[in-house]
Amino acid sequence: MIDGFVAVYVFMLAAFVGNEIISKVPVVLHTPLMSGSNFIHGIVLVGAMVALGQAETDLGKTFGFIAVFLGAGNAAGGYVVTERMLEMFKTKKKKDVKKGEGDKK
């Protein structure tokens, strides 16, 4: 079991990191970024796998099966959709320097 306060610190730090990252994103990338972050919470899949792996009752197995199914759909679908959207940005060089907010720093 995780120490409650350690978790609170991690929650806090991760929240700041998430905030920092997205605050610099240009409007062009909003949809792909939302899709990309949608993919990242597909990590719920690993939790679902463990939960199903440890399920003993029929009900647990049913719920676990649903959880893994939904989690895998989130991860796989999120990846494909994001990748397809970002594919369209690949060939173009970063010409949006004039946007100011889009560049690296």
């Binding site: 995780i2 991690v10 991760a14 690993v46």
Partner: peptide
């Protein structure tokens, strides 16, 4: 939150990352 319940750090960090980024967006 469910990551915390399961003791799974990858879920905790990734979930909170998206939670914060999504809220700001």
């Amino acid at each position: 939150f469910e990551g915390y319940v399961l003791g799974n750090w990858a879920m905790i960090v990734a979930g909170m990352l998206v939670g914060a980024a999504g809220t700001l967006l």
